[in-house]
Amino acid sequence: MNLAFAFAIYFIIWWLVLFAMLPIGVRTAEEAGEKPVPGAADSAPLLPRLLPKMLATTVIASAIFAFVYAIVVHHIITLDDIPFFPRYERMQ
């Protein structure tokens, strides 16, 4: 696995994990019992706590990437192991 491919895979995993982490622990102003800020959407989070979520995203994405990296580098799962992939003859 070359560096560009590894970076691209990590980047995709990081963003997917971030979008999964964003709604965790978020409360709106109404849920927190406070007055909504004028001009803000009613569904806007009161305290989004983005920095802790980004740090947790980095840790989780790194663990997932390490797992994917081990699978790719050590050939634990190959394309031939995936049953729904079509089988093609190799050309010489």
Results as ranks from 00 to 15, higher is better:
Ala20Pro: 09
Ala63Tyr: 11
Pro36Met: 01
Ala4Gln: 15
Val72Arg: 12
His74Met: 08
Thr58Cys: 05
Trp14Met: 03
Ser43Gly: 11
Met91Cys: 15
Leu55Asn: 02
Tyr10His: 02
Met54Gln: 10
Thr58Pro: 01
Arg87Ile: 05
Gly39Thr: 01
Phe67Gln: 09
Ile12Asp: 06
Leu16Phe: 13
Met21His: 15
Gly39Pro: 00
Val37Thr: 06
Pro23Ile: 04
Ala6Gln: 15
Leu22Val: 09
Glu30Lys: 00
Pro36His: 00
Pro23Asn: 09
Arg49Phe: 11
His74Asp: 12
Trp14Glu: 03
Trp14Ser: 05
Ala6Tyr: 03
Ala40Ile: 01
Phe5Ile: 15
Ile82Asp: 00
Pro36Thr: 00
Ile24Glu: 07
Arg90Thr: 12
Ile71Phe: 08
Ile60Pro: 01
Lys35His: 02
Ile64Ser: 02
Phe11Ser: 14
Pro52Val: 04
Leu55Asp: 03
Val68Glu: 10
Arg49Thr: 10
Glu30Ile: 01
Arg90Leu: 14
Tyr69Asn: 10
Ile64Leu: 09
Tyr88Thr: 13
His74Ile: 07
Ile76Gln: 12
Glu31Gln: 14
Tyr69His: 14
Ile24Ala: 11
Val26Thr: 13
Ile82Pro: 00
Ile60Gly: 00
Ala61Pro: 04
Ile76Pro: 04
Asp42Arg: 02
Pro48Trp: 01
Val59Gly: 07
Met21Gln: 14
Thr58Phe: 12
Val59Tyr: 07
Arg27Met: 10
Met1Gly: 15
Glu34Tyr: 08
Val72Thr: 14
Arg27Thr: 08
Ala70Thr: 08
Ala6Ile: 09
Tyr69Met: 08
Ala61Val: 05
Phe65Tyr: 11
His74Val: 06
Leu3Lys: 13
Arg27Tyr: 08
Ser62Arg: 07
Val68Cys: 14
Ala56Asn: 02
Ala29Lys: 04
Phe7Leu: 12
Gly33Ala: 04
Lys53His: 02
Met91Leu: 15
Ile64Pro: 00
Gly25Asp: 11
Pro86Tyr: 11
Trp14His: 09
Val68Pro: 03
Glu34Asn: 10
Leu55Ala: 08
Ala4Asn: 15
Pro83Phe: 00
Phe84His: 09
Thr57Phe: 05
Val59Asp: 01
Phe7Tyr: 08
Ala40Glu: 08
Glu30Trp: 01
Ala70Trp: 11
Leu3Cys: 07
Leu16Trp: 13
Ile64Arg: 03
Ala40Pro: 02
Leu18Thr: 07
Asn2Met: 10
Thr28Phe: 09
Phe65Asp: 09
Met54Arg: 12
Phe84Pro: 04
Ala4Val: 15
Ala41Ser: 10
Phe65Val: 05
Ala20Tyr: 15
Pro48Asn: 04
Ala66Trp: 12
Ser43Arg: 09
Ala4Pro: 12
Phe19His: 13
Ile12Glu: 06
Pro83Gln: 02
Arg27Lys: 13
Ile9Arg: 11
Gly25Arg: 05
Ile24Asn: 03
Val73Leu: 14
Pro23Cys: 10
Ala70Leu: 13
Arg87Phe: 05
Pro52Met: 05
Ile9Glu: 12
Ala29Cys: 06
Arg90Phe: 14
Glu34Met: 07
Tyr10Glu: 03
Ile71Ser: 09
Pro48Thr: 06
Pro52Gly: 04
Leu3Glu: 12
Thr28Gln: 07
Ala66His: 11
Gly25Lys: 03
Met91Trp: 15
Ala44Pro: 02
Thr78Asn: 03
